[in-house]
Design a protein around this nucleic acid. Structure first.
Lengths: 150, 150
DNA sequence: GTTTTTGCAAAATGTTTGCATTGTA
DNA sequence: TACAATGCAAACATTTTGCAAAAAC
């Protein structure tokens, strides 16, 4: 088996990650696809891309592998409210803006107070391990479309 | 028809809301259920509750109405990545913490930089109208369960 | 009278499960 | 050998759609 630690990078979540995830060939291929992607693909899209390298791979394997990789803290799962989960191989803290019309996703970096986790934990008594910030609006392309067809 | 403005409250999103939503009887009942709820119910749960007041109401009507109310800025749609959308009648800016094990949701209030929308819009060139902040972790009950059954 | 909403059923989409098989420690 | 991952199909849950009837403007 491949060494899971050889592929581990700095993790955005601050605890609870399971380091016991086995990195099988299927998972390595899926991890590579997610890391190479810049479009925050859905499981279906990841399946299509992995299938080009492993034509025999099954849909359920992709779902299982994605869950394992998320649990292990190797990738991040996002939901923008459009039904399907999306996956992000970029673990450094960052935020997302989603177009409510076409689903386009942009990444952004904003400076945040580093004490948020503690403050949030104190307010809720939850044992928190991560957070997500999502902006919603219209992407430049859809704004342009609105100007052309008002 | 009921006057939509009679039920409008201060809105957390800062633009794009459609003020043209008709407040029919079904929508008024659904809006009331969402506003009375403190548990961020799913569409299925809202359907169950509305059905007690309007036994003939259809599932699709609940979905349609929820979409209209979200589009009108009367309620907020949340997705915590557990499949179903959740709805929140509280429009003042606030954040949510979700238990990744049992799905419990807690609300919290943190002071945020008020210039976020502008900064995010400048970085992405999106025309943004709202944002959400979600924390993930274990609720007190699930933490206790872990201590009892390690 | 035209447009929108409702109600119902069916379909579409996304995700999970059961189980036999394969692969890994 | 014991355990976990894979592959396949079927099941499940959530959401959307088509269309006729009802309601709203």
């Amino acid at each position: 088996m491949l060494d899971i630690n050889a592929v581990r990078v700095k993790v955005g979540r601050w605890s609870l990650a399971d380091p016991q995830v086995k990195l099988t060939a299927a998972r390595a291929a899926i991890l590579a696809v997610v890391r190479e992607a810049t479009d925050h693909p859905t499981a279906a899209l990841i399946y299509d891309r992995v299938k080009q390298r492993m034509p025999h791979i099954a849909y359920a394997t992709v779902y299982n592998a994605l869950s394992a990789l998320v649990a292990g803290g190797f990738i991040t799962e996002l939901s923008f409210g459009d039904g399907a989960s999306r996956y992000d191989g970029r673990l450094e803290p960052h935020q997302h803006a989603t177009c409510v019309r076409c689903g386009a996703v942009a990444e952004l970096d904003m400076s945040l107070q580093p004490d948020w986790p503690q403050v949030a934990g104190q307010q809720t008594h939850f044992h928190l391990h991560s957070y997500q910030i999502q902006f919603f609006g219209l992407c430049p392309r859809c704004q342009e479309h609105d100007r052309a067809h008002p």
